[in-house]
Write a protein that binds this DNA or RNA. Sequence first.
DNA 1: AGGTAATGTGACCACCCAGTCATAAGGGGA
DNA 2: TCCCCTTATGACTGGGTGGTCACATTACCT
Lengths: 200, 200
Amino acid sequence: MPKATFFNLDPEKREAVLQAAWEEFARHPFEQASLSRIVQDSRIAKGSMYQYFEDKLDLYLYMVELAYEQKRSYLKKAFALKADMFTILEEYYHQSYLFARDFPFMHRVINNFWDSRAPALEAELARGKLSRSQDFSGFLKEARRKGVVNPLLNPEAIFFVYHAVGRDLIEYFGDEANSRFVSDVLDVLKYGLQAREEGS
Amino acid sequence: MPKATFFNLDPEKREAVLQAAWEEFARHPFEQASLSRIVQDSRIAKGSMYQYFEDKLDLYLYMVELAYEQKRSYLKKAFALKADMFTILEEYYHQSYLFARDFPFMHRVINNFWDSRAPALEAELARGKLSRSQDFSGFLKEARRKGVVNPLLNPEAIFFVYHAVGRDLIEYFGDEANSRFVSDVLDVLKYGLQAREEGS
DNA sequence: AGGTAATGTGACCACCCAGTCATAAGGGGA
DNA sequence: TCCCCTTATGACTGGGTGGTCACATTACCT
């Protein structure tokens, strides 16, 4: 958490710090990101930074939190939908796409965060992963109960697949992915690969 | 490529260097790996390292190459199979699992390599990705021709899904994954999620 | 204007890094 | 023993890092 001083700051200055930090943490994972560079880019004295934040980690976690706050405001539109699992998932990734399009820096910061291996972040990452897996589990259980999902499949394997695909889908937004492609990918998961007599 | 001196080395010494390098590159991505640590751990003078290798990158790429050589000797067993696509894929991931079990350090080095973002590795990574995508493309086209794979699905989306899932499957070997789990995951891809009247 | 508390500052510290180089040591062959 | 070539060595260079601190500056209240 930033110190009170940071919030008392002249908004223009605060924005400059944030902007420099977005660029740095978007370009580099936590360990390789450089406070010195952020300080240089935002034309602020090194010492000032330590008036605003405890240390590099404090700043970083704050940025991640800001980014997630913004992203959640997109994602909630998907969860608000009263529809079947596949539709909700499609909207979920669609909203992720819109977020990445509108806030590319935040998007990259979040991606870097998820595949960070810094020991300082281990605890934070584990918490996030667990929470996500539980969310999806509840979601999936509901869908199975309703008979929307093939009950013969191992739920953990389903989560694994969605996690992996969702991760890459989000990682490569802006590259090859677009809305149409997201649908196609989800179709692969929905219908499966194996050819069938009666198409659906 | 190592310099000739490296191959003239007393095998015990050479092994010590390699062992220290495996541990370092397994624990840290290229940029964060420290030559100084490797040199310390292998009880060799800093200068000696530069008698054996051009620089840090030279050593690193050599290690990745060694690891891949070993891994290929496992994977080729899958490609030698005369069976349908799903069976071959299952064997492919099974062999990946065995490799990770037998050579955990190499396995982690390869994983770190794939999600490295170091500019020095960009070219090498792009080459590898392209080659893999072409391999899979040919593979998939063949399967479609034989009617094993649902022709309504977007081939690029199929590749995307397999790439993502395969990547994570390999990344987490040793954690949650085992042979049974690999099958379950592949079943999810094969049969798809959506419930059907007649099970298969 | 005076005084006090909050902020700003950049030189500086200790540490780590990849890579270099002058010098020393070793290993045949003559 | 001498020579020469290959190999070993670790102090050193130049540069980067996160973080500190004594001091300067500003802002606000009386």
